[in-house]
Simulated scan of single mutants.
Amino acid sequence: MIRQNHWLIRGDRIGFFEGMRGSEPLFVFLENLLDNRSDVGLIRLNLPDFDTLKEPVSLQALSEIAVKAGVTRIALSDTAEDVAVRTLEALFSDNVDPLLNGHHSGLSIPVMLPFREIPDKELQLFADHYGVSAQGLGYQEHHRNSLEKPLLKLLGEFTASHPSAPHALRHYHDNLLLLSRED
């Protein structure tokens, strides 16, 4: 998937936000992936201190932090459930912009989502295997609106008896994105 999406290009400086939910397993994954590549760099970025901020950090603010650090692409640890919940939220709120303009259209630099096809539970298993934490502050938790929390619960309940639900919603989102780009 990384090759298919052209997420690693010679000269890239991949940034990830330390302290974000899933950032430790993301770092382990990227470090192993880039171990033999001298043409791509990996940069740890400091997540703003959410406790001292009066408002949630915008995607644009995260972009500005990354650009100042020389990052050319941001890596996020979004899982299949994260993509599915954002897809449902866009559909139920009648805000189709995220469906037609990409996963994180508010970011001004390219994004890579290497975990977007795996469930949260598999990310946790990966983290456990490497002895790191998948916990932490989450962009998602700080930006959830009133509709997303019930949708996350609904998705969890539905996924319990239909494990492929997050993947079906991810495919739905990907297909809409492809169709919007063909116009």
Rank of each mutant, 00 (worst) to 15 (best):
L30T: 06
V28I: 14
G136A: 10
G22I: 02
D35Q: 14
G41V: 04
Q124W: 11
L45F: 01
M1I: 06
V71F: 13
I43Q: 10
N95F: 12
R144P: 00
S93F: 02
S108T: 15
A134Q: 09
Y130P: 03
P110I: 03
V85H: 04
I9G: 03
N95L: 10
P163A: 09
R10L: 13
R73P: 02
P48S: 08
V28D: 08
R144G: 02
P150K: 02
A90K: 01
P163H: 07
V111W: 12
L177I: 01
S77C: 08
A90C: 08
V71W: 10
E148H: 02
E18D: 15
I65N: 06
L151Q: 07
R44D: 08
S146V: 03
P56V: 11
L26F: 10
Q135P: 00
E117C: 05
F126I: 15
Q135V: 09
G106D: 07
P119H: 11
G70C: 09
L179C: 00
S77K: 04
D128C: 03
H103T: 12
V67E: 04
Q60T: 11
S146F: 02
N145R: 01
F126G: 03
V85Y: 01
A66L: 12
A127W: 00
S108C: 09
H167T: 15
I74P: 04
T72H: 08
I9D: 11
L107V: 12
G22T: 02
D51I: 07
P150A: 04
G11R: 14
K54E: 14
H129Q: 14
R73C: 06
E157M: 11
D94A: 15
I43G: 00
N32A: 13
Q60F: 13
T72M: 06
L26G: 06
P114W: 08
R144M: 14
V40C: 08
N36T: 08
D128H: 13
V96M: 11
T72D: 06
N175F: 07
S133W: 07
F158L: 15
L179A: 03
M112F: 08
P98S: 06
L178M: 10
K149C: 05
L45R: 01
G156V: 05
D78E: 13
G131D: 14
K149N: 09
G136K: 09
Y172F: 15
I2S: 02
V71I: 11
L88M: 15
I9C: 12
R116L: 12
F92K: 01
G19S: 02
G136F: 12
S146M: 03
L91H: 03
E24P: 01
L59T: 08
S77L: 05
L100K: 09
H104A: 15
D39A: 09
K54M: 12
I109M: 04
N175V: 11
D120I: 14
N101S: 11
G11A: 09
N101K: 14
